[in-house]
Amino acid sequence: MTAFIVHRIWQALLVMLVMSILVFAGVFLIGNPVDVLISPDATQEIRQQVIAQYGLDLPIWQQYLHFMTSLLQGDFGRSFVYNMPVSELVASRFPATMELATIAVLLASVIGIPLGVYAGYRPDGWPSKIIMAVSILGFSVPTFWIGLMMIVVFAVEIGIMPAGGRGDVVSIFGMPWSFLTIDGLHHLVLPAVNLSLFKMAMMIRLAASGTREIMLTDTIKFARAAGISELTILRRHVLRLISIPLVTVFGLELGSTIAFAVVTETIFSWPGLGKLIIDSITSLDRPVMVAYLMLVSLLFITINLAVDLAYAVLDPRMRQRGGK
């Protein structure tokens, strides 16, 4: 068991190191930030000065070493564009993304799972057909398109919703939050729904196919033969069995929702990480790009590690293998 945990953590660290090399090498290959930073009619002297200031004249491996040592000290460098420490910049954008992603995943689960269980329970009824058709819609229609339509319908035509921004925020522990003010909530509705639709479609389909397969098994036939009420069957057998994959998905989805937020944030001008990374890619703001990619990698590797370790604790087969 301990050997397994040590092995997994070691593996996660290795992956993180590989990611850091890939990200750094990849970022280094895109364009030349000097052209963005310095106006074309600047003198040669100023050019040299700026290049030296950002360490852009050093060989790439030295830049990497320098980058890694400062990374381990929690220093991501300074943003070329905002001229402030990247760690501060990312920290100031992170709450907005976290807030949006959490609410989106909650919405998706609370609405998606009951609809999915119903659609799997009565697959031939017309409400189920509609639910499944809408879920195909949610899968098929790209998020950015739904976002555009939401803005056109609710912000432009009807005019009851703001088209973008975060609205009023309340500061807690030094971080701004939107969901605590009426105006903030008002601004949060469209982007949160937009971000949750894809996940909701996925939850519906997972819950529906799980329920449908379980309903065809002998367990359910015998339970019915024994005279157990349908509601009890649903609650005690179906929900309990499909909850295992759903909980796993829920954990993993929180991470991927943060990644997906890039699209939603761009459309709704939500000042989160996703908007930041798009802006920094277009302006070749290398330190910000590196920091974002490393942060997301770290997030996913941590989530995976946590899921694996949780399985190791929960699954008796894994426990035994590790104990050898």
Partner: peptide
């Protein structure tokens, strides 16, 4: 690799 979303 599958643990990272395709869009990312």
């Amino acid at each position: 690799q599958l643990s990272f979303p395709a869009i990312l």
